[in-house]
Design a protein around this nucleic acid. Structure first.
Lengths: 109, 109
DNA sequence: TTACTATGTGAGTATATAATCACATACTCA
DNA sequence: TGAGTATGTGATTATATACTCACATAGTAA
C-alpha cells in the first residue's frame, strides 16, 4: 500500500499533468518553446478567445509551468522551466510508439 | 496560427496527459513499472475501491498506456510502452525544478 | 482629461469527470 | 451442478472544468 508521502507526490505529479492536459495549454507550451509571448499573440496562435486563453494561462502559472512580466499594456508569458520542452518530447515519444504499434497491427490485418 | 494538423497533435498529446493526470492513475503507472499486476493488487496498492480502479484502468487502456491479459479469474495489467517510466521521471524533473526554485525563493525571504 | 487597448475576472451554462453502489459476467473449484 | 471470487459496467450523484459574455482594471497616448 502506498505511503501518505508517495500519494502526495502522485498528487503533485497529477497537478502538473493536468495543467498541461488540454490541447490549448499544450499549444501554448509549444508556442513558448521559441520564446516569450504576450497574451494577444498567444490567443491568435491557439485560435481562441483572449479571456479563455487568459484563464488557461493562469492555470499554467498556478501549476508553476509559466511565469510572466508586464511590459506596458502587455503581459508577456514564458516557460518557467527548461525541462518542459523535454517533457513534451517525452509525450511525443509515447505517441510515436503508439503509431508504430498501430502500423505493426495494420500490417497483420 | 496553429495548423489543423498541429492542433490534432496537441489533442492527442492532451489525451495522453489527461490519461495520466490523476493521482490514482499515476500511482498505478508507478506500481506497474516494476512488473504486471492484477486489478486486485493494484486496488490494494492505490487504496481505492476495485470498481473505481477498474474504471481508471480502462481509461489508461483506452489511451494506449496499458495492456492486459486474462489469467484465470484475474486480469493482469502492464505498461504498454517502456517510455512511460521515462515520461514519469520527466514530470519528476519538473517538480524537482520547482522545489529548487522554492528553496531559492525561501532563502531570499 | 478622454478615448483606446490589453488583460483579467465573475456569472452563468454546458459538459466532463470521479466516486459509490448494486448488479452482471466470467472463471474456478468442490 | 452450485458456491465463491475477480472483474467490469450502468445508474446516480457530486464536483470540476471549459467556454462565452459582460464588465473591471491598468496602462498608453492624444
Amino acid at each position: 500500500m502506498l505511503s501518505k508521502d508517495k500519494m502526495m507526490l502522485c498528487e503533485r505529479q497529477a497537478d502538473i499533468l493536468q495543467a498541461l492536459g488540454h490541447p490549448i495549454r499544450i499549444a501554448i507550451a509549444h508556442f513558448l518553446k521559441d520564446g516569450e509571448q504576450c497574451v494577444c499573440d498567444i490567443a491568435e496562435f491557439v485560435g481562441s478567445e483572449r479571456s479563455n486563453v487568459s484563464k488557461h494561462l493562469s492555470i499554467m502559472i498556478n501549476a508553476g509551468l509559466l511565469e510572466s512580466r508586464k511590459d506596458g499594456l502587455n503581459v508577456i508569458y514564458r516557460l518557467k522551466c527548461r525541462c518542459i520542452p523535454d517533457f513534451l518530447s517525452c509525450v511525443t515519444d509515447v505517441l510515436k510508439q503508439q503509431v508504430k504499434d498501430n502500423k505493426k497491427l495494420s500490417r497483420v490485418l
